[in-house]
Simulated scan of single mutants.
Amino acid sequence: MEAKEYLSQAFRLDNRINSKIDQIALLNDLATKCTSRLTGMPHNPSPGNSQMADAIAKIVDLEAEINRDIDALVDIKCDLVKTIKAVNDIDCQLLLEERYLCYKSWEQIAVEMDFRVRHVYEVHNDALKKVEKILSAQ
């Protein structure tokens, strides 16, 4: 696995978690929109499939999936922190933390580090080379 791909895995997993949270919100909306029809005709008191029950089952499954993903995200971030701390340059460490743990944009990082954006890219390239060496040594 390349350094950039290795460092980006937390961001991708975090996006997947957020997507699942959005799905839960949509399912909650669907479950609360369920309505019953009122007619004078007799009906089966326990219909085979309930839209609300299906939505609730999907919500429970997604919540369990999210919990597993959050556990994986915490593990990945802990691993990333160890790798970033192994980099022997403070500027590289700070840039890697801001970009891959806090998900900040290049412009935000440049402002916080008081660098030009172009210099941030140069430090990033240097940091990736250092991470590659750390990963290849493991």
Rank of each mutant, 00 (worst) to 15 (best):
F11M: 12
F11G: 11
D14P: 04
D14M: 09
N15C: 13
R16I: 02
R16M: 09
R16V: 08
R16W: 05
I17G: 00
I17P: 02
I17K: 01
N18Y: 01
N18F: 00
S19L: 08
K20E: 06
K20N: 03
I21G: 01
I21R: 10
I21F: 02
I21V: 06
D22T: 11
D22I: 03
D22A: 11
D22Y: 03
D22K: 05
I24A: 04
I24G: 03
I24V: 14
I24P: 05
A25R: 12
L26K: 15
L26T: 13
L26M: 15
L27S: 07
L27C: 10
L27E: 06
N28W: 11
D29S: 10
D29I: 12
D29F: 11
L30T: 11
A31D: 05
A31M: 05
A31V: 02
T32E: 15
T32I: 09
T32V: 08
T32L: 07
K33C: 13
C34F: 14
C34H: 14
C34V: 15
T35F: 14
S36Y: 13
R37K: 13
R37W: 13
R37E: 11
R37I: 14
L38E: 01
L38R: 00
T39H: 03
G40A: 08
G40S: 07
G40L: 10
M41E: 07
M41L: 12
P42V: 05
P42N: 08
H43R: 07
H43S: 13
P45D: 03
P45G: 04
S46R: 13
P47H: 11
P47D: 12
P47G: 05
G48A: 15
G48M: 14
G48T: 15
N49G: 08
N49I: 11
N49Q: 15
S50A: 12
S50G: 14
S50V: 08
M52C: 12
M52P: 05
M52Q: 13
M52V: 10
M52N: 13
M52A: 14
A53V: 06
D54M: 02
A55W: 00
A55C: 02
I56H: 00
I56D: 06
A57C: 10
A57F: 04
A57S: 07
K58L: 12
K58T: 02
K58Y: 10
K58M: 13
K58R: 08
I59K: 01
I59Y: 00
I59M: 09
V60F: 03
V60Y: 03
L62I: 07
L62N: 04
E63A: 08
A64H: 07
E65N: 02
E65T: 01
I66H: 00
I66S: 00
